[in-house]
């Protein structure tokens, strides 16, 4: 028989010789399984509304882009303003190989990883050379340059129209089931990224990452191979972002650079980072859901919605200057929890 006992700040449940404690205030509900369970059960409530399923699938994908970005920002101690470059590279690699060479999604997956890793490795020296604002500016320009290429080589990339008709990852016969399956696949991808980021953050490598983010010269003096770490934490998250591009290609079955490469898309990622807390993995999920819902809510407003996101971004910068985000401010349990503060450094 389970016995419940109400204490000042917690509920204690006793069953046989076991004791379970639940703190009443939600901010102490640290068990991520609660969040996972909610996300898993979500389609049961909304499976009749494909628009909602698409919205939450988009939220999962936005989170799946932001989580590796947080890892990258801490690991390289630089603020990357253009992670969508690898989304574009991954997406176009998968789409072109599938359309023109008929490659199976599994093969395009491998090709996406190889392509993103190769390009990221080639560009990784910018994490050593470019510092502070210069790094941010370079990374800001790269996706825009790639977007231009998609217009210049319109025969290949199909410019504004984009590529359509790629083979799907799954086809369950009914449209509703397909939407539900894509939601779960995107959720699995996002949760996998969350798990990876969380494991890294809590491991010996996480402590080293934090040291690099704090002061890379001092970290180097303490024996940390900063250059090697920077290359790894530039390439690895880039590959993870590229995989999201691959996923979009084989689920939405359409991919246009004009959707993912412009600054508007980065604006959403920035808002997620600011709301969820800079470089804080769990916050990215909350931020992504906020942005995806906000985007759908303001869509009927027409042209005004182009102004809403920049306004939200400015508000987040002004009212959340410490970089912990709404989620971080609320959720931080101990003052000693390491919260990466990302700064645009001069050195």
């Amino acid at each position: 028989m389970v016995k419940f006992e109400l204490k000042r700040d917690r509920i204690i449940a006793r069953w046989r010789d076991r004791k379970y404690e639940y703190i009443i205030e939600p901010r102490y509900w640290r068990n991520p399984w609660i969040g996972v369970l909610l996300l898993v059960l979500l389609p049961l409530a909304i499976f009749r509304y494909p628009a909602f399923l698409t919205m939450f699938t988009t939220a999962n994908l936005l989170a799946a882009i932001t989580i590796p970005l947080g890892l990258q920002m801490v690991g390289t101690a630089r603020v990357n303003f253009g992670p969508q470059l690898y989304l574009g590279i991954g997406g176009y690699t998968a789409a072109l190989l599938n359309l023109h060479l008929g490659w199976h999604p599994f093969l395009t997956f491998l090709a996406t990883i190889v392509m993103c890793a190769a390009i990221a490795l080639m560009l990784s020296p910018i994490t050593w050379i470019a510092k502070g604002l210069y790094f941010s500016l370079i990374t800001l320009i790269l996706p825009l340059a790639f977007l231009d290429l998609t217009f210049i080589y319109g025969d290949l990339f199909r410019g504004e129209v984009g590529l359509v008709g790629m083979s799907p990852l799954l086809d369950l016969g009914r449209v509703t089931w397909n939407y539900v399956s894509y939601y779960y696949l995107s959720l699995a991808l996002m949760l996998f990224y969350l798990l990876v980021a969380d494991k890294i953050g809590r491991s010996r490598y996480g402590v080293t990452l934090a040291a690099i983010n704090e002061d890379e010269d001092v970290a180097r003096m303490m024996g940390v191979n900063v250059s090697r770490n920077k290359v790894f934490y530039y390439v690895f998250p880039s590959v993870l972002t590229g995989i999201v591009g691959w996923f979009i290609v084989h689920t939405f079955r359409t991919f246009a650079g004009v959707t993912y490469l412009p600054l508007d898309y980065m604006l959403k990622i920035l808002i997620i980072i600011l709301i969820g807390g800079r470089a804080y993995s769990y916050g990215a999920v909350w931020g992504a859901y906020f942005v995806a819902i906000l985007e759908d809510v303001i869509r009927p407003l027409g042209p005004i919605n182009y102004v809403v996101f920049p306004l939200v971004l400015i508000a987040a910068i002004v009212f959340l200057p410490r970089g912990e985000g709404i989620f971080g401010l609320y959720h931080k349990r101990h003052h000693r929890d390491y919260f990466p503060q990302l700064k645009v450094r001069r050195n």
Partner: peptide, 26 residues
């Protein structure tokens, strides 16, 4: 190894975490 004229600690890290970085990498 060296110390600095003006201390350069990892401000957002605890004392234990800061020394742990040295133990793991030094």
């Amino acid at each position: 190894c060296r110390t600095y004229q003006i201390p350069r600690p990892f401000y957002a890290m605890t004392a234990l975490a800061s020394v742990t970085v040295s133990v793991l990498n030094g």
